[in-house]
């Protein structure tokens, strides 16, 4: 059904895709331009910074490819259609999260992964397959945290009946993940490690790739993923109890 929707709105989705590509290209050009004037940023070389940048885009694109459906929940609630979702014999949370996969983001993953591999080559990562394996493991952990953040967002929408504001805070905060966390002061790093875990989502996999991830940081990533995932499921249950149908 989602695929049919894409085919019938080619101009609409083509425009989205164009916007995504422009945003990505401009930011990459800006980073390259900045490195014409400086040799390092917070102690990282050009390709190391690009590894952080690409990892942020990779994780964000995975999130957008999978969870586009949550942007429809508020409208469903407003019109009373969410009553049908909760009363059907299906998992209403899974339906709300995965009802509209974004195929354009899947397409966008192709050039993105090409650039990731190019950066691997430039950094000489292929001589260290353990780092690549760790990178993939922590990308998976980041995806679990992403699932949790989207569950929090959809829970708050169901609870407050306001728009998916929380996910916009996360998406704006992802801008902070485009660069190495060392550019932030310690209190800011703490906030974006434990409260809105952008550093865990982006910097942990990137550091694993570069071979500079500390065991403490790796454990923190596992703990944050655990707490966020199970905490978000709890919040979803509570929000359903507070759901007051707009149509009744």
């Amino acid at each position: 059904m989602a695929a049919a929707s894409y085919m019938s709105n080619r101009i609409e989705y083509g425009s989205y895709f164009f916007g995504k590509v422009v945003r990505f290209a401009f930011l990459l050009v800006a980073i390259l331009a900045i490195f014409n004037h400086v040799k390092t940023m917070a102690g990282y070389s050009k390709y190391q910074v690009i590894a952080f940048f690409l990892t942020a885009f990779l994780v964000d694109t995975i999130g957008q490819a999978l969870f586009r459906g949550i942007y429809l929940v508020r409208e469903d609630i407003r019109k009373g259609n969410f009553d049908y979702v909760v009363s059907k014999p299906l998992n209403s949370l899974a339906y709300s999260l995965f009802r509209l996969p974004d195929f354009l983001d899947v397409i966008f993953l192709v050039p993105l992964l090409t650039l990731v591999i190019y950066t691997f080559v430039k950094l000489g990562i292929f001589s260290n397959p353990a780092n690549i394996l760790l990178y993939l493991v922590f990308i998976l952990i980041s995806t679990i945290i992403l699932v949790a953040l989207h569950i929090v967002s959809v829970s708050l929408t169901v609870w407050t009946m306001e728009s998916e504001s929380f996910i916009w805070i996360y998406r704006n905060a992802m801008f902070l993940g485009l660069f190495p966390p060392e550019i932030f002061s310690n209190p800011v790093q703490l906030i974006f490690t434990f409260a809105m875990p952008i550093i865990i989502i982006v910097a942990v996999p990137a550091k694993a790739l570069l071979g500079i991830l500390t065991p403490g940081m790796a454990l923190a990533a596992l703990a944050v993923a655990f707490v966020f995932f199970f905490g978000s499921l709890l919040l979803w249950k509570i929000s359903l109890k507070h759901y007051s149908s707009a149509s009744s």
Binding site: S8, N9, I11, E12, Y13, G14, S15, Y16, F17, F18, G19, K20, V22, R23
Partner: peptide
């Protein structure tokens, strides 16, 4: 002329 304009809006805002 189109069903939706959010994509166009996003592109123009990005530019």
């Amino acid at each position: 002329w189109t069903v939706d304009n959010e994509g166009m809006f996003y592109s123009i805002k990005t530019l």
